[in-house]
Computed example of a mutant assay.
Amino acid sequence: MTSETSRLVAGFDDLDRDWLRGRGSVKWHRPGPDVLPAWVADMDFPIPPAVVTALHDAADRRDLGYPDWPHGSPLRTAFARRMTERYGWAATAERVREQTDLIQCLQLILHLATSEGDAVAIQTPNYPPFLATLETMGRRAVPIPMKDTDEGWRMDFAALDAAVRHAACKVLVLVNPHNPTGRVLTRQELEEVAAIARRHDLLVVSDEIHAELTYAPHQHIPFASLSSDAAQRTVTLTSATKAFNLAAIRCAVTHYGPDRLLALRDAQPPDLYGTVSPLGVVATEAAWRDGDAWQRDLLTVLDRNRRRLSEVLRALMPRLRHHPPEATYLAWIDTRPLDLDEPPTERVLKAGNVLLDGGTPFGPGADAFLRVNFATSQAVLEDILTGLTRALADGAGQ
Rank of each mutant, 00 (worst) to 15 (best):
P46W: 11
P46G: 08
I47D: 08
P48N: 11
P48Y: 11
P48S: 13
P49M: 13
P49C: 14
P49Q: 15
A50G: 11
V51R: 11
V52E: 15
V52D: 14
V52Q: 15
T53V: 15
T53C: 13
L55Y: 10
H56I: 10
A58N: 05
A59K: 10
D60T: 05
D60R: 12
D63A: 15
D63H: 12
L64S: 14
L64Q: 12
L64W: 14
L64N: 13
Y66E: 15
P67M: 09
W69I: 03
H71D: 13
G72C: 06
S73K: 06
P74K: 03
P74L: 07
L75S: 06
L75G: 05
R76V: 08
T77R: 14
A80G: 06
R82W: 06
R82G: 10
M83T: 11
M83C: 14
T84Q: 15
T84I: 09
E85K: 10
R86L: 12
W89Y: 15
A90K: 12
A90M: 11
A90V: 10
T92H: 13
T92R: 15
A93D: 09
A93G: 07
E94C: 08
E94T: 13
V96A: 11
V96L: 12
Q99I: 08
Q99N: 05
T100R: 13
D101A: 04
L102Y: 00
L102V: 05
I103E: 02
I103K: 02
C105L: 03
C105K: 02
L106P: 00
Q107H: 04
L108R: 11
L108V: 15
L108G: 03
L110E: 02
L110T: 01
H111P: 00
H111V: 01
L112V: 02
L112K: 05
L112W: 09
A113S: 10
T114D: 08
T114M: 06
T114W: 04
E116M: 05
D118T: 03
D118Q: 05
A119K: 02
A119G: 02
A119H: 06
V120L: 04
V120N: 01
A121R: 07
A121S: 04
A121Q: 04
Q123K: 06
T124C: 12
T124I: 15
N126W: 00
N126C: 09
Y127R: 09
P128R: 03
P129T: 00
F130G: 00
F130E: 01
T133I: 00
T133W: 01
T133N: 01
E135G: 01
